[in-house]
Amino acid sequence: MISELLSSIKRNCKVYFKDKGMFFSSLITPIILLVLYVFFLSKVFKDSFVSSLGEVSCPDKLINGMVAGQLCSSLLAVCCITVAFCSNMIMVNDKVTGARNDLLITPASRWVHAIGYYVSTAVTTVIVCGVAGVGSLIYIACSGWYLSVGDVFLLLADIVLLSMFGTALSSVINFFLSTQGQMSAVGTAVSAGYGFVCGAYMPISFFGKTLQNILGFLPGTYGTSLVRQHAMNGTFREMISMGWDDSVISEIRDSVDANLYFFGNKVEIWVSYLVLILSIVLLIAVYVLLNMFCGKKKNK
């Protein structure tokens, strides 16, 4: 079974990287977001942050580092999901071209093909988002670097986890798709909507209480919060070392979702990880079961 699985993973990865269109359409999301953030939103974020500080004096480097951390965390939180949907096109393409039928007449079990698609999509998503992550770190370094080695590793781990979550989510949704048109529609909807519902485009703390509570049920929210915490941790540490009041720092953390609340209760970091990991496991289980039972044979 292992050799069958490896063969399936290698084939999917190679098809993905050989298809220039698929690869570049995946890469284009982080590039567009980075350009949009850097040229259009960074000034808005910076002005908003400075005005919220009021009388408190803050060095430019710290402000820039904080804004860069917020922008990059938003970018990465969105990319890990949208890129996964893009990478997972192979699964739908195989249905469109008939390759899926050919793969299913081999003795390899349906779960082998399902996991093959999952792992290859996760790998390609991690690679693309990893590149976006490195780009983000360079941007943060140019703006104002306060991250520790630990922060960087945790940020990269968050990228891997969020990519796995995005892949699992896209696998379950894409399972029901069988045409390029459906795939494009879902990709567009996810690209347009996910950034809002996970708190990437706008912090959840800006929303009304009811919406905040509803969004607390979505696992993506916890992923965004993790990325944000690790991208901005250095700047918060710097504020502490500068002797800022705890309440001011806490307020800033709340305003950018670095502190996340579920029905008014603060969510600890380990809980966010737990929610994300359990969601991944649950989605993968659903996806494999769908493949094993729902798609067993076409009746029509």
Binding site: S3, E4, R11, K14, V15, N101
Partner: peptide
């Protein structure tokens, strides 16, 4: 139904792997 973007040998290798 083979993969048009892959080489002939890759197509055969990956299908063989599934057996």
């Amino acid at each position: 139904v083979l993969d048009k973007s892959l080489s002939v040998i890759d197509n055969l290798k990956y299908r063989a792997g599934l057996y």
